[in-house]
Simulated scan of single mutants.
Amino acid sequence: MRAQFKIRTQLRQGEIDWYCLADAQIKAHKFDDASKSIQKGIALAKKLLMQEVVQDFNDLKERFNTEICS
């Protein structure tokens, strides 16, 4: 049980790391890198069946698209 919690926590932290990285890359106008980070975060969240987190990444992706167009 403890090992399963540790793995789940590490995976959750990985998803948070991808989100924060993508957010920072958008702010730094590193759009190619941000796009890759968003896609990796979405893939991880889907793998974990975390639809709410997938939506968070989709919201970030929408902001990313807005930044690119401006």
Rank of each mutant, 00 (worst) to 15 (best):
D32W: 05
E15A: 13
E67M: 05
T66A: 10
I7W: 01
D23L: 13
S35D: 04
E15S: 11
D59H: 12
I26A: 09
L21P: 04
Q25W: 05
H29Y: 06
D59L: 14
T66E: 13
D32F: 08
G41H: 02
I16A: 13
K47G: 09
R63I: 14
A34P: 01
K36T: 13
S35F: 02
Q51V: 10
M50H: 08
R63C: 03
K40W: 08
D32I: 06
I68T: 00
A45C: 12
I7Q: 04
S70T: 01
K46H: 05
R2W: 14
Q51G: 07
I42V: 09
D56Y: 03
E67R: 08
K36R: 10
R63M: 08
N65M: 10
R63A: 10
F31P: 04
I7H: 05
I42A: 03
I38R: 00
I26H: 02
A22E: 05
L49P: 01
I68M: 07
Q55V: 15
I7N: 03
G41W: 01
D23I: 02
K61C: 11
I16M: 14
F31W: 01
Q51I: 06
N65Y: 09
K30Q: 14
M1W: 10
K46N: 11
G41C: 03
A34W: 01
N58L: 09
K6A: 07
C20Q: 15
K6V: 11
D17A: 07
R63F: 11
C20S: 15
E52S: 05
A3N: 12
M50S: 09
M50E: 10
E52R: 02
N58T: 04
M50C: 06
L60R: 01
D23N: 14
L21N: 08
K61R: 07
C69E: 15
A34L: 01
D32A: 11
C20H: 15
K27F: 08
S70P: 04
V53C: 03
A43W: 04
N65K: 10
A3W: 12
L44Q: 03
A24P: 09
D23M: 09
R2M: 12
D56N: 07
H29W: 03
F57K: 00
M50F: 06
M1A: 14
A24E: 15
S37T: 14
A24S: 15
F64N: 00
K36D: 09
S35Q: 09
L48Q: 05
E62D: 06
S35C: 03
A22K: 01
A28R: 05
K27A: 13
M1N: 12
A43V: 06
K47F: 11
E52I: 01
R8E: 15
A3K: 13
Q55F: 15
L49D: 10
I68F: 01
E62Y: 06
Q4D: 05
L49N: 14
V53S: 02
V54F: 03
F31Y: 10
G41A: 08
C20A: 15
E67W: 03
T9S: 12
C20W: 15
I7C: 00
S70N: 07
K40V: 11
R63N: 10
A28Q: 02
A43Q: 10
Q13N: 14
V54E: 04
S70V: 03
Q13D: 14
M1I: 11
N58D: 12
F5D: 13
I16L: 11
V54N: 04
E15W: 02
F64C: 00
L11D: 13
G14K: 02
I16H: 12
